[in-house]
Design a protein around this nucleic acid. Structure first.
Length: 917
RNA sequence: GCGGGGGUCGCCUAGCCUGGUCAAUGGCGCGAGGCUUAGAACCUCGUCCCGUUGGGGUGCGUGGGUUCAAAUCCCACCCCCCGCACCA
C-alpha cells in the first residue's frame, strides 16, 4: 500500500465525517484520550505506540455500536521550547544540527525558530499531519493548544485555578530548589551536565562556641548523633573563612557558604574575613557533651559543601580518622593525644568501624578517593543497624536512625543547631556553572499533601478500572508519597495565574482536566475570550447558575449555553486515558487529583491504561543516541498499518516494548501479500457447494471476533492484534490448504468482509482496502462487529482430529526415514470408544488411553465416543493424502487382516493406528 | 534508599492470573528444497538431545517446597530495567 492510498482514505474519512463525534442520546458513548504531547519536536514511535492503543480501542468501540469521542490537543506550556529557541538564536551548533538532522527541519523554517511560538506552531502543524497519516480517528474540530496563545483554552485554565483556589487547594509557600546562580533559575535533572538524580538534602549545622570568644564555629553534618564521639574540629588552613552575623549569632563559616546561606533566607551580615590557619590551634566547646576540643587543619574539606567546618568523629567517619592519622604521622603536636571515641555498636564491625574500613580498603590518606566508598559503607551500615552505646548519656540504646532525629531536636532546642539544604554531590548546570540550593519564596503550591484530597484520589483509584491491574498499587503509593507541588513558574510559556499575573501555571498543572474542555472546545470557537467567563464554565461543568443570566452576561445565546452543558453531560466522564508508565507518578496522578477536586463523583475518570516505554532495537530512544524514529519516518518506511501492527504487537501490560525494523518490514510484506492474494482468490473462487472447510473458516471468524471482544475490554491489545492479523491470516492460509485452492466465492467474500471489520481497529487502511475488494462502499467503520456468526463446534472437532492424524503420520514417516507406498489407518468405532470411556478394554491399552486423554484439549475430550471416526477421516481423505503425500485408506479395526492386526489393535479413541507398506 | 516491572529454546517475543491441549507462540537468524538466467522477494519443510510406528530424556534466572502433575502456585536468593518532583 502506498502513501496515496492512505491519503485517499484519510480524505474519505474526513468527507464522510466518520470520526466526528456528535451527541446522540440514543447511543452509548465512549470518551477516550491520549495525553497532549509537547510541541518541541516531531512525534516519534513512542507516541505512535500509545496513540495506536487509544485509537484501536476507539475504533473497536465504534464498531461495537458506541458513539466514540477521540479528540486531541497540543502542549505548549513550559520552558524547553523557549530555551531551544534562545539557544538557536545564540547559534548553538549542536542544537542546529539536532533540528536539521534528527527533526528534519528545513533551513528556511529553522531561521524562524528563534521565535518559540513559531516553533510550537510549526510542530503542531507537522504532528497533526503525522497523526492523520497514522490513521488515528480524531475529531479535529475540538483541537486546542495550551498557553495564552490559545486564549479560549487559557480562559479555561483560569477557571480551573480560580476554582481550585476557592476550594482551598492552592497555597503559598517556600521550597528548596537546585539553583543555577548564573541563569538565575531552577535546574532540573535534564538541564544538568553533571549530577543527574541528585536532589537537596538537609544538612545539620551545629554550633561550637569558640573558647573565650562570643562567636561560633558552625559545622555541617548529616549525622548529628555522632556529636558524642567528637574529638576535634577540622578547618581548611588554606581557605578563607568569614565572621558573620547571621540571625542572632556570630558565625564562623567558609566564605563560599555566605551566598548559599543568603539564598536560603538566612540574614547574613559579614563582619570580617579570616584565613583558615588563623583558626587552627584555637579551642571550641562541643555542645551537648560540653567538651573542649582543638581546631585542627585538614585538606579534605570541600568549600562548596556546607560551611567548610567539620567536626571530627574518627571512630565512625573515615575522613576524620584519615585526617587525624595524617596529622599524627606528620608529628603535628596538637593531634598527638587524640584517640577515636567509639559511640555506635553495629553488627559486622568492631569498636572503630572507620579504622576497619580504612584498613580493609587500604586507604592511603584523606585525599584517596576510596575514602568516599568507606564513608558510604559505614553510613549505610550504621544507619540501618547501628545502636548508640552507653557513653551517649540518655540517648544510649537508641537506634542511629532515631537518635539522629532526637539529638538534633535537642540541639535545636538549646539554640545550638539549625539546618540548611545542601547538594550531597556536585551539580553542574548546562551553562557549566556549579549549582546550589535556593529556597524560593512566595511560590504557589497545589496542596497534594492534604489528607482529604488524598483520600478522594484514593477512592477514585480504588473504584476506577486500571489496566494492567499491577498499576493500581503504584498509583496508591504515589498518592501517599505526593507532597505539595509548586504549580506556577516565572519563565517559559503558559497561562498566567489569574490572581498573580507574574506567575504562569506550570505544565503538569495545566494539563489535568482539559478533557472536560474537549467536550465543548468546538462550540467555544465561535466566541471570543471576553465571553468565556467563569460563570459559563461553572454552569457547563457544575450546573451552577441560571443559563439565561449566563447568556446575558456572556452574550452567548441561551440555547447554546444549555447545549454546552448537555454536551458536557453527555460525554463526561473520560472513559479511558492511555499513557506510557512514565506518567504514572506525575501527570496521571495529577489528572486524578484535579478531577476529584473539581468534579462530582459521576464525572471522575473511569479507566486508565498504562503501557511500557518503547525501545528501538532494544535501546532506549534518545536524540543523543540518534536512534529516534519519528512517526513520519516510520510511516514512510513501513506504511501506517505495518507500523501500527508492529507497535501494537510489541508489548503487553507494563513491559517495555521493543520496536524492530525487521519485524515491521516483515509485516509490511505480509500485508501486501494478503491484499494481493485476496484479489487472486476472489477471481479464482467458484460457487461450489458449501463444505466443512467453509464452516471451519467461519468458525474461526466467530472464535476470533469473540476473543478480541474479551481482550479489548481489558486493553489486551497485543493479544487482540495477534488474533486479528496473524491468526486470521493463518486461518486463511490453512483454509486454502484444506480446500486445495477450490475456494467458495461467497464464503470467501464473507470471510474477507468479516476480517476487514475485525482488522479495522488495528490496521484501518488495510481493512478499508479489503472491504472495498469485496464490493462494499463507503467505509468499514460504518459496519458492526461480527457477532452471532453460527459456530459449529463439531466441525472444529473433526478438523482437529484430521490434523492430529496428519501430524502423527508425518511424525512416523520422519522417524522411519522412509516414505511408505501405502498407508492404512485403523479406526475404532463409536461403540468401541464408548467401551474405552467406560473402562471396558484391555488393561495396558486402557492405561495408555487414560494417559493420552489427560493431555487432550477439552474440545476433543467432550466428543470421545460421540463421533464415528471412520466417517470423519473418509470425508477428509483428499486432504489427508495431500498432506502426507502417500495414498491412504481408512479401515475399521475389526476389518484388519491377520498381518495388520498386530498394529491395528493399538488404536485408541481419537488416536487411530496405522500400517505402512 | 523507597516504589514499580521483569528474567522463557542463537536473538527478540508469547504463555504465567484460571497447573495438565507446553519441547513450549510468532518474528528474525540459520539449514534444505521450490520458483528464478542469477539475486531479492515469495512458497514448502526443518531448526534442544536420543529414537526405523506416533515414544523417551533434558528444559522456561538459581535453590527449595506444594501437587498424581509446575514455565505456570508458594518461599528464599541472584541478576536486569524504569520512576523518585519545579522536568516535559
Amino acid at each position: 500500500m502506498n502513501d496515496s492510498v492512505e491519503d485517499a482514505w484519510v480524505k474519505k474519512w474526513e468527507a464522510l465525517g466518520i470520526f466526528k463525534a456528535e451527541v446522540d442520546k440514543y447511543k452509548d458513548k465512549v470518551f477516550v484520550t491520549f495525553p497532549i504531547p509537547y510541541m518541541n519536536g516531531p512525534l516519534h514511535l513512542g507516541h505512535a505506540f500509545t496513540a495506536s492503543r487509544v485509537d484501536s480501542y476507539a475504533k473497536y468501540k465504534k464498531l461495537n455500536g458506541f458513539n466514540v469521542l477521540y479528540p486531541q490537543g497540543w502542549h505548549w506550556t513550559g520552558q524547553p521550547i523557549v530555551s531551544a529557541a534562545e539557544r538557536l538564536a545564540k547559534g548553538d551548533e549542536k542544537m542546529v544540527k539536532e533540528f536539521k538532522e534528527i527533526d528534519k527541519v528545513p533551513d528556511e523554517i529553522l531561521e524562524k525558530f528563534k521565535d518559540p511560538v513559531f516553533m510550537a506552531k510549526y510542530y503542531t502543524e507537522r504532528n497533526r499531519e503525522a497523526m492523520k497519516k497514522l490513521g488515528l480517528g480524531i475529531d479535529w474540530r475540538r483541537e486546542f493548544v495550551t498557553t495564552s496563545y490559545d486564549e479560549r483554552f487559557s480562559s479555561f485554565i483560569e477557571w480551573q485555578f480560580l476554582t481550585l483556589r476557592e476550594k482551598g487547594y492552592v497555597t503559598k509557600g517556600s521550597h528548596p530548589v537546585v539553583w543555577c546562580p548564573r541563569d538565575k533559575s531552577p535546574v532540573g535533572d535534564h538541564d544538568r551536565l553533571q549530577g543527574e538524580g541528585v536532589f537537596p538534602v538537609e544538612f545539620r549545622l551545629i554550633f561550637f562556641k569558640l573558647k573565650d570568644e562570643e562567636s561560633y564555629l558552625v559545622a555541617s553534618t548529616l549525622r548529628p548523633e555522632t556529636i558524642f564521639g567528637v574529638t576535634n574540629i577540622w578547618v581548611s588552613p588554606t581557605l578563607t573563612y568569614v565572621k558573620a552575623k547571621i540571625n542572632d549569632k556570630v558565625w564562623i563559616i567558609g566564605k563560599s557558604a555566605v551566598e548559599r546561606l543568603k539564598d536560603q533566607l538566612f540574614e547574613v551580615e559579614v563582619i570580617s574575613e579570616i584565613k583558615g590557619n588563623e583558626l587552627i590551634g584555637k579551642k571550641a566547646i562541643a555542645p551537648l557533651v560540653n567538651k573542649e576540643i582543638p581546631i585542627l587543619p585538614a585538606s579534605f574539606i570541600d568549600p562548596d559543601i556546607g560551611t567548610a567546618v567539620v567536626y571530627s568523629v574518627p571512630a565512625h567517619a573515615p575522613y576524620d580518622y584519615l585526617a587525624l592519622r595524617d596529622l599524627q604521622k606528620s608529628g603535628y603536636k596538637d593531634a598527638q593525644g587524640i584517640s577515636p571515641i567509639s559511640i555506635i555498636e553495629v553488627e559486622g564491625y568492631g569498636e572503630f568501624p572507620a579504622v576497619e574500613e580504612v584498613e580493609k580498603l587500604k586507604i592511603k590518606d584523606q585525599n584517596d578517593p576510596n575514602a568516599d566508598v568507606a564513608t558510604k559503607n559505614i553510613y549505610s551500615a550504621e544507619f540501618r543497624k547501628g545502636v548508640l552505646k552507653q557513653n551517649c548519656g540518655s540517648y544510649a540504646g537508641l537506634s542511629v536512625n532515631a537518635a539522629r532525629k532526637v539529638v538534633y531536636e535537642k540541639l535545636e532546642e538549646l539554640g545550638l543547631a539549625t539546618s540548611m539544604w545542601e547538594l550531597p554531590e556536585p551539580i553542574i548546570c548546562r551553562c557549566t556553572t556549579r549549582c546550589h540550593v535556593k529556597i524560593l519564596q512566595d511560590q504557589w503550591f497545589l496542596k497534594y499533601s492534604d489528607e482529604r484530597w488524598k483520600e478522594a484520589a484514593r477512592e477514585c483509584v480504588r473504584t476506577m478500572k486500571i489496566y494492567p491491574e499491577e498499576a493500581r498499587q503504584w498509583f496508591l503509593d504515589v498518592i501517599d508519597w505526593l507532597n505539595d507541588y509548586p504549580c506556577a513558574r516565572q519563565s517559559g510559556l503558559g497561562t498566567p495565574l489569574p490572581w498573580d499575573k507574574n506567575w504562569l501555571v506550570e505544565t503538569l498543572s495545566d494539563s489535568t482536566v482539559y478533557m472536560a474542555y474537549y467536550t465543548i472546545a468546538h462550540r467555544l470557537k465561535k466566541y471570543n475570550r471576553e465571553q468565556l467567563k467563569k460563570e459559563l464554565y461553572d454552569y457547563v461543568f457544575f450546573g451552577k447558575g441560571d443559563p439565561s443570566i449566563i447568556a446575558s452576561i456572556t452574550g452567548i445565546p441561551e440555547n447554546e449555553v444549555r447545549e454546552m452543558r448537555e454536551e458536557f453531560l453527555y460525554w463526561y466522564p473520560v472513559d479511558l486515558r492511555v499513557s506510557a508508565k512514565e506518567l504514572v507518578p506525575n501527570h496521571l496522578t495529577f489528572f486524578i487529583f484535579h478531577h476529584v477536586a473539581l468534579f462530582e463523583k459521576n464525572h471522575w475518570p473511569k479507566a486508565i491504561a498504562v503501557n511500557g516505554m518503547l525501545r528501538v532495537e532494544g535501546e532506549k530512544m534518545s536524540k543523543s543516541k540518534g536512534n529516534v524514529i519519528t512517526i513520519e519516518e516510520g510511516i514512510k518506511e513501513f506504511g501506517a498499518d505495518a507500523l501500527r501492527i508492529a507497535l501494537l504487537s510489541s508489548s503487553e501490560y507494563m513491559d517495555d516494548a521493543n520496536f524492530k525494523r525487521e519485524y515491521a518490514r516483515a509485516i509490511k510484506e505480509r500485508i501486501a501479500k494478503i491484499l494481493q492474494e485476496i484479489d487472486q482468490d476472489l477471481k479464482s473462487s467458484t460457487n461450489r457447494d458449501k463444505n466443512d472447510y467453509d464452516t471451519w473458516l467461519l468458525n474461526m471468524v466467530s472464535k476470533v471476533s469473540k476473543d478480541i471482544q474479551e481482550n479489548m475490554e481489558k486493553m489486551n491489545i497485543k493479544l487482540s492484534v495477534t488474533e486479528a492479523f496473524f491468526i486470521m491470516d493463518n486461518a486463511y492460509k490453512d483454509y486454502k490448504k484444506f480446500v486445495n485452492s477450490n475456494i467458495n466465492h461467497t464464503v470467501l467474500k464473507d470471510f474477507i468482509k468479516y476480517w476487514a471489520i475485525i482488522l479495522a481497529p488495528f490496521a484501518p487502511f488495510t481493512a478499508e482496502e479489503m472491504y472495498q475488494k469485496v464490493g462494499e462502499k463507503d467505509s468499514v467503520f460504518l459496519e458492526n462487529w461480527p457477532s452471532g456468526i453460527q459456530y459449529e463446534e463439531v466441525k472444529d472437532v473433526e478438523i482437529e482430529l484430521v490434523n492430529r492424524l496428519v501430524e502423527d503420520i508425518k511424525e512416523v514417516i520422519k522417524i522411519v526415514k522412509k516414505k511408505p507406498t501405502q498407508i492404512t489407518v485403523f479406526v475404532l468405532s463409536k461403540d468401541d470408544s464408548i467401551n474405552f470411556v467406560n473402562g471396558k478394554a484391555e488393561k495396558d491399552v486402557l492405561n495408555k488411553f487414560m494417559k493420552i486423554k489427560v493431555s487432550m484439549p477439552d474440545l476433543l475430550k467432550n466428543y470421545i465416543g460421540k463421533i464415528e471416526e471412520k466417517e470423519v477421516y473418509e470425508k477428509h481423505l483428499d486432504y489427508i493424502m495431500r498432506q502426507v503425500g502417500v495414498p491412504v485408506n481408512i479401515k475399521s479395526v475389526s476389518d484388519a487382516s491377520n498381518e495388520e492386526a498386530q498394529r491395528a489393535k493399538n488404536a485408541l479413541p481419537f488416536k487411530p493406528a496405522f500400517v505402512f507398506k
